[in-house]
Design a protein around this nucleic acid. Structure first.
Lengths: 235, 235
DNA sequence: GCTGGCTCAGTGGCCTAGCCAATAGGACAA
DNA sequence: TTGTCCTATTGGCTAGGCCACTGAGCCAGC
C-alpha cells in the first residue's frame, strides 16, 4: 500500500504565487501585524517582492480565500482577525508532538456522545452489528491477533447506532488519525484483551439502554488508549 | 461595530474571480465531472466565460486553495478527488430534515469538551479575548441587536482557549451549520439576553479553572439553543 | 523489441502596460 | 457645521506576448 522508500518524493513544483503568499504571510507574522493593519499598496509590494502585479494578485487571492487578508477595492489590503487563528493552527500542525493528546481528546468528545446516543437509539440491527464486531475481535485476539480490524468495526458499529450523520462524518474525518493510535495501542502486550473487555462494557450499556453508563464506559475505554499513547510520548 | 438590523447588509462586492470560481464550481457539479476530468484550456475557458486569462487564473488559484482543482503546468487543469466528497456531504446534511438536532448534538459533544479543556488551559490572553467577546455582545444586545457576531466571537475565543487544534478544526468544519442555527436562535425574543447570561456563566467557570463547571455551563447553554430549535421544528 | 533522445504542439506561468472603478480625505460652498 | 465635489490613491481587470513545462510521436542505436 504505502509508496515506500525507493522512489524520490516527486519534487514538488511551487508556483510563484505560493512563494509570494508564504512570504507575505510570514512577513505579517514577523512584523507582528494585527488585524486591521494595512499591507503596502499592490504596486509597491509587487516591486518590493520582484514580481508582477498579476502574480501578487494571485497570492492575495490565495490569502483571501484562506482568510488571512481582506482586499478592499480602492482602499487597500488589510490583515484580518482570522489570521492569527489559522497561522497558529498551521504552526501547531507542524508540531506532531502534540498530536496524540489532541486525538485522544477529540475521540473522547465525540465517542462519549456517540455512545450515549447509541444507548438510546440503537435498533436490534445495530445491536447485532455491534455483537458481530465483538465476536470478530474476540476470535482474532483468541488466535493471538491484535484485533485491529475488530476494534475498527466495533467503533464503526457504535457510531452507526448513534444515528447521527454529522457525528459519523466527523469521526470519519479523524479516522486516519485514530487508526494510527489504534495500531500503537493494540501493539502493547495485554492490550487487546483489555480493549475487548472495554468494548464488552460499552456494548452492555448500549444494550441496556443506559446512556450515562455507555458514556462512562466509552470514556474509560478512550482513557485506556490514552495511557498507551502517553507512554509512547514519554519515550 | 455590529451589523445589526437597520443597516442594509453592506452590499457585498463580488470580485469577478469569485463569480468565475463559483461558475466553474457549479459547472463541474452540473456536468457531473469526476476526479481526474479535465477543464478546458485556460485560453478557451477564459474566452467562453468572457473574462481575461488573468482573472480566470485568479479563480483557479481560489479553487486550487479550496481543493477543488489541481492546475498542472503544461498539462491542464483537472478536478480533484477532494471536491465531491465535501460538497456532497455538506449538501446531504443540509437537506437532511433532522439536521437541527444533529447539529445540536454535535455542538454539545465538541463544545462541552472544549469548555472543560479551556478551563484548564486558558492563558490570560485567552481570557482577555473571551471577555472582549462578552463585552462586544453585551454592547450589541444593549443597543437592541441580536448579538450574533458577539456570539460567534465568544465561541471562537473559547475554542481557541482550549488549545486543541483538532477540536478547533472540527468546529470550523461545522461552522456554517452552526451559523444557521445561531441566526434562528438569537432571533427569538429575549434570547440574546439569555444567551449572554449563559456565556457569562461559561466564562466564569473558565476563569475559575473549573473544567466540570465549564462543561456543565456549556452543556446548559447548548441545551437552551436546542429548545429554540425544537420549537421551530414543531412549527 | 526495447531504450533513450529529439521535436513539436498544446498548455499553464508570468510579465508589461494600461485603462477603469472605488475609496477616503481634503477643499470649499451653503 | 454640514453637505458637496474633487482628486490622489489604490485595487480590478484586460490585452497581448514570451517563456517553461508536458506529453505524444518519431527515430536512431543497442
Amino acid at each position: 500500500m504505502s509508496e515506500s522508500s525507493p522512489f524520490p518524493p516527486r519534487l514538488l513544483r511551487t508556483r510563484l504565487y505560493e512563494q509570494v503568499a508564504g512570504q507575505i504571510s510570514t512577513w505579517i507574522d514577523d512584523n507582528g501585524l494585527q488585524a486591521g493593519d494595512r499591507l503596502p499598496p499592490e504596486r509597491e509590494l509587487a516591486q518590493r517582492l520582484g514580481v508582477s502585479r498579476a502574480t501578487l494578485s494571485q497570492a492575495l487571492v490565495a490569502l483571501e480565500v484562506v482568510g488571512v487578508v481582506e482586499v478592499r477595492h480602492g482602499d487597500g489590503t488589510v490583515v484580518t482577525a482570522g489570521h492569527q487563528k489559522t497561522s497558529r493552527i498551521v504552526e501547531a500542525i507542524r508540531n506532531h508532538a502534540d498530536r496524540l493528546p489532541e486525538i485522544i481528546e477529540t475521540r473522547d468528545a465525540l465517542e462519549t456522545k456517540i455512545a450515549s446516543l447509541a444507548a438510546v437509539r440503537r435498533t436490534d440491527d445495530d445491536l447485532a452489528r455491534i455483537d458481530d464486531a465483538l465476536a470478530f475481535m474476540a476470535a482474532d485476539v483468541e488466535a493471538g491477533g491484535r484485533g485491529v480490524e475488530g476494534d475498527e468495526r466495533f467503533h464503526g458499529a457504535v457510531t452507526a447506532a448513534s444515528h447521527s450523520l454529522l457525528l459519523a462524518r466527523l469521526m470519519d474525518e479523524i479516522g486516519d488519525l485514530i487508526k494510527e493510535t489504534r495500531l500503537e495501542s493494540l501493539g502493547q502486550p495485554g492490550r487487546p484483551q483489555d480493549s475487548l473487555a472495554g468494548h464488552r462494557a460499552i456494548a452492555e450499556a448500549i444494550r441496556a439502554g443506559d446512556p450515562a453508563a455507555a458514556a462512562e464506559a466509552m470514556h474509560a475505554h478512550v482513557a485506556m488508549v490514552s495511557d498507551v499513547a502517553l507512554i509512547r510520548e514519554a519515550q
